[in-house]
Simulated scan of single mutants.
Amino acid sequence: MHDVPLWLWIVFGVLVLVSLAVDLLAHRTAHVIGFREAAAWSGAWIGLALAFGGLVFLVVGTDAGVEYTTAWLLEKSLSVDNLFVFALIFGYFKVPRAYQHRVLFLGVLGALVFRGIFLAAGVAVVNRFTAVLFVFAAILFYSTYKILKGEDESFDPGKSFAVRLLRKFIPVRDEYAGPHFFVKEAGKRVGTPLLAVVAAIEAADLVFAVDSVPAVLAVSSDIFIVYTSNAFAILGLRALYFLLAGLLDRFHYLSVGLALILAFIGVKLVLQASHKTISTSVPEIPSLVSLAVIVVVLAASIGLSMLRPPPEKESERGG
C-alpha cells in the first residue's frame, strides 16, 4: 500500500467533478459530435490523466507512478471492447447521433460509482484472501478464450437483464421524444427508448467490470491507484467512442491484442498469487514490464490492422 496524502484524494475528487461539470456544460445542447471535436476532447482527457499521473509520480513515488500509468493504459485498452458494444447498442435501439453523448454521460456516472464499489470490494478481498488471485486469473483466461472464439460478439442489447428488468417496472414507449428519458402519456409517466439504452449501457459496463477489475488488481492492490486510473480511463471513454466511431471495424486485430493482454495479465496474477501463497522464490512480473508489454501489444495490433485491412476491405479493392 502506498502512503497517499488526503489532499491528493481531494485533488482527484475536485478534478473529476470539475471535468464532469465542464463536459456537461459544453454539451448541454444535444448535437452530433464530429471528429475534430471528439479529437480535441480525447486529447484533453488523455492530457488530464497523464498530468495526474505526473502528480502521482512526484507525490507518492516512482513505483506508484508506474503502477498508475500501467493501470490507466490497461483500462484504456480494455475499454476499447466497450466501444464495440456501445456501437452495437446504439445500432440496435437506433439512437439518433445527437443524443448519444447524453446517454454515454449517464453511463460514465454509473460506471464511476459501480467501479468504485467493485474495486473497493476487490481490494478488500485480495488483501485478506490472496489466493483469490488464482480465481481472478481463471476469469481472465476464460475471457481470453471467449474473445479469441468470438463469443463476446453474441451480446443482445434487447435481451440484457437490465433492459428486461426496466420494462417490468416502467413502461417504455417505442418512439423517441427528443433528449428526454421520460414523457407523460394519458396522465402516466412512461420511459422513452433512451432510458432503455442507458440501462443497456450500464449492464454492459457491469459485464466488462468482470474482466477489468481482476486485470487492474494484477497491477496494484492500492485502492487509490486502481480507482483513479480507472476513473480517468472511464472519463475519456465518450470522446474515444466518437473519435473512433465508424473506424472500429478497421482495427480488426485489436481484439486479438486485447486477448493477449488479458492472457499476459492472467499469467502475472498466477505468478503474483504463487509468490505470496506458495513460495517467495516464484518470480513476479514488475509493473514496468507489464507497461512495456501492454504498449507493444497495442501498438502491434493497431499497426497490423492498418497494414492489413479486413478481408472485406481487400475484396472491395479487388472489385
Rank of each mutant, 00 (worst) to 15 (best):
V16S: 02
G266V: 01
T192F: 08
A292H: 09
S19A: 08
L73I: 15
F242G: 04
A199E: 08
V293G: 08
A26W: 02
L206K: 00
V22C: 09
W7E: 09
L194E: 02
P309S: 01
T62E: 09
H180C: 00
S220G: 03
V135W: 03
A218D: 08
V293E: 07
I294E: 12
R97L: 15
P214M: 06
V11I: 15
S279Q: 05
S315K: 15
W45H: 14
A299W: 08
L133E: 13
A121D: 03
L194G: 05
L165R: 12
V22S: 11
L247K: 06
V216H: 10
A64N: 08
L248F: 03
F182W: 11
F90N: 05
A263H: 05
V135H: 03
L260V: 14
V256H: 11
H31I: 00
L73P: 00
V226P: 11
S154D: 15
A300V: 15
V198I: 13
V183E: 01
L15R: 11
E312P: 06
V226K: 08
K313Y: 06
L140T: 05
V198D: 05
F114Y: 14
G91N: 12
E151N: 06
L258W: 06
S212I: 00
F105W: 11
T144H: 01
I223V: 15
R189F: 00
V210C: 08
S281W: 10
G54P: 06
K313E: 11
F12W: 13
G150Y: 06
P214F: 04
A162Y: 12
V125F: 11
V4S: 07
V59M: 04
F90W: 05
M306C: 01
G34I: 07
F169T: 09
R102G: 05
F161H: 06
Y99Q: 09
G53W: 01
R308E: 10
V22L: 12
M306K: 05
S79H: 05
A245Q: 14
A245R: 13
I223R: 08
V267A: 11
E175T: 07
I33R: 05
F84R: 07
V282D: 04
F182L: 14
L109F: 02
F52D: 07
A38N: 02
K168R: 15
D152Q: 14
L307I: 01
G91Y: 06
S281R: 12
F86D: 03
D63G: 12
V256W: 09
D23T: 12
L133D: 02
A231V: 13
H101V: 02
W41G: 07
A87H: 07
R128F: 06
W72P: 09
L304Q: 02
E202H: 03
R115G: 02
G150A: 08
G303I: 12
S143N: 10
A51L: 15
S154T: 15
V270H: 04
S220P: 09
T29S: 14
L133H: 00
T29R: 15
K168Y: 04
S220V: 00
V210E: 10
A292S: 14
W7A: 07
R250G: 10
P193H: 05
